[in-house]
Amino acid sequence: MTAITGTVYDSSGQPVEGVNIQWSSNEDPPVSSHERGSRTIDDGSYRLVLHRGSWDVHGTKDGTGTEVETVVLGADDAVVDLHFP
């Protein structure tokens, strides 16, 4: 298992608390998908622990979504910051 950590920022660059972090596998067949698994804390940060592979990660809050970031996890942890448009 490998960790993805990051921070979610609003359009002005401020961290956002309470963002629902979602992820889905890009593997064939898909390893897993999760629509409600992690929420950002007061400093906008989050942490996911996932299997190695390719993942799409994004966040939603109040009906608005961040951009989708694709990350390929290997042996090392990854940092993926997300941004609202």
Rank of each mutant, 00 (worst) to 15 (best):
H51T: 09
G65K: 03
V16A: 02
I4L: 07
V19F: 02
S12M: 13
D77R: 09
V80T: 05
H58E: 01
E35H: 10
T64P: 04
A78P: 08
R47W: 12
V57C: 00
S45Q: 11
R52L: 13
P29H: 04
G63K: 01
N26M: 13
T60W: 03
E69T: 07
H34P: 08
V31Y: 04
R39I: 13
R47Y: 10
Q22T: 05
E67M: 05
D42S: 15
P15M: 02
H83A: 14
V80D: 05
S11K: 14
A3P: 02
A75D: 15
D43Y: 14
G74C: 09
D76M: 10
S45P: 04
S38Q: 14
A78K: 07
T64M: 12
V31S: 07
V79L: 12
N26K: 14
T7D: 10
W23A: 06
S11G: 11
L73R: 01
V72Q: 10
G74N: 10
A3I: 07
D42N: 12
N26T: 08
L73A: 10
G65C: 07
G13P: 12
G59Q: 02
T70C: 12
H51A: 15
H83E: 13
T70W: 08
G63C: 05
E69F: 00
S54F: 01
R52F: 12
L50S: 02
G53N: 08
D43S: 14
T66N: 01
L73T: 03
N26I: 07
T70E: 11
V79W: 11
L73F: 08
E17C: 11
L48D: 02
V72C: 10
T5E: 12
D43G: 10
G59S: 09
R36Y: 14
D43R: 11
D56W: 02
E27I: 08
D56Q: 02
N20R: 05
L82P: 04
V16S: 03
G13V: 05
G53C: 08
T2P: 06
W23F: 14
S12I: 14
Y9N: 09
Q22D: 09
S45K: 10
T5V: 12
R47L: 15
D42H: 12
A75Y: 13
W55R: 01
T60Y: 07
Q14A: 15
G53I: 06
Q14G: 13
T5M: 04
V19E: 03
R52D: 13
Y9I: 09
G65Y: 01
V68D: 04
I4A: 02
T5Y: 05
H58L: 05
D62H: 06
V71A: 06
L48E: 03
D62R: 08
R36P: 12
G53V: 06
W55G: 00
S38T: 14
V79A: 15
G6T: 04
S33R: 10
G13M: 04
I41V: 15
V8I: 06
V31T: 13
T40Y: 05
T5W: 04
L73H: 06
V8A: 03
D28F: 11
G6W: 01
A75S: 15
L50Q: 02
G63Q: 02
H83M: 09
G13R: 11
A78C: 09
G44Q: 06
H34D: 13
L50A: 03
D10G: 06
V79Y: 06
E35M: 11
R39F: 15
L50T: 01
L82W: 01
